[in-house]
Nucleic acid binder design. Structure first.
Length: 305
DNA sequence: ACTGCGTCCTGGGGGC
DNA sequence: TGCCCCCAGGACGCAG
């Protein structure tokens, strides 16, 4: 399941291959499922083609789990970008020998004959060309951004923990801690709230909570400032380590742009390890429902205080 | 304003 | 062997 480390791995893979190549065709595959990928494009594939053909990608930018590729017209920015979200199972693939595949949904063809394919089994992902607008929070859009602009549909997304500016401490870490401690919601709901801090999904939320020894249902307002800081540090560390490993390919729905799996799954301490022993204390890892999702945790290390 | 739950979707796997 | 049901969950819309 693509979260920040997986999306960043894809961003890096795309950035090395798709820039400054003229787009000559955009085609939808898979009947209704391909159309569903374009559900946020009001004018459908016709509008998508109208805004992509003859142009080229100038960059590949990511904030949280959102990816976008600013478009160039005659080598100049045109204020528009192809916005992509991978959802649960979206994949960008750069096949050396373009062929058909059951889950191929949208194919972009470049003038040199190369293609960029978007695959998606569950079709929670989407592609849409949208206008760029200035960022409201003052920073750059995110990783890989050439300008402080965001696609309109992603403008509400918060900065992520690997954002270069956040890492420098020059922005909202204190504001984030304050907002977490001002909420009565369970801490895992706060970690997953993409408007507060983006990029964290179910796997890395569980892993960060285990590292910081925090129970998923502990109310934000009941956690000390120091513990919230430690939790954010843990989340930052696990995201960075997973990125270094190329991401987590837990259920094979995530691969990089060359079709290769990431290998962070072997480093997971709680996610998918129900019934196995906690590496820290030996207690049996449990799985429990929270927010209609599975939460994996150590009942001894992570107690609700 | 804030919170939480239902919905979308496919394929793999377990149970009978 | 085959079939049915459940489960995985990111983001958003809506109800209370």
């Amino acid at each position: 399941m693509p979260e920040l480390p997986e999306v960043e791995t894809v961003r890096e893979g795309l950035a090395g291959h798709v820039l400054h190549r003229s787009i000559v065709a955009v085609d939808v595959h898979g009947a209704g499922l391909g159309q569903r990928i374009l559900r946020h494009q009001a004018g459908g594939v016709d509008e998508l083609r109208g805004r992509m053909l003859g142009r080229a990608f100038g960059a590949v930018v990511r904030r949280g789990k959102f990816l976008w590729l600013p478009l160039l017209q005659e080598g100049e920015s045109c204020g528009e970008a192809l916005l992509a979200h991978l959802g649960m199972s979206g994949q960008f693939l750069l096949p050396e020998q373009p062929g058909q595949h059951r889950q191929l949904r949208v194919r972009t063809t470049f003038a040199d004959g190369g293609v960029l394919d978007f695959h998606d089994q569950r079709t929670f992902g989407y592609l849409t060309v949208t206008d760029l607008e200035p960022t409201a929070d003052g920073g750059a859009g995110g990783h890989g951004d050439p300008a402080p602009e965001l696609p309109a549909p992603a403008a509400h997304i918060g900065r992520d923990l690997l954002d270069p500016l956040r890492a420098l401490g020059s922005d909202g870490r204190e504001e984030l801690v304050r907002r977490i401690r001002g909420s009565r919601r369970g801490i895992k709901a706060l970690l997953l709230d993409q408007t507060l801090v983006s990029g964290i999904g179910n796997i890395y939320a569980d892993e960060a909570l285990w590292r910081a020894r925090v129970h998923y249902a502990q109310a934000g307002a009941s956690i000390t400032r120091a513990r919230v800081q430690r939790l954010l540090d843990s989340a930052t560390e696990v995201l960075a380590e997973a990125l270094a490993a190329g991401g987590t390919s837990f259920d094979s729905l995530y691969v990089n742009v060359n079709g290769a799996s990431g290998y962070f799954e072997r480093s997971l301490e709680v996610y998918g390890r129900e019934g196995q022993r906690c590496s820290r204390c030996g207690a049996l890892i449990r799985r429990a429902a929270f927010m209609n999702r599975s939460s994996h945790f150590c009942p001894r290390c992570q107690r609700k205080g």
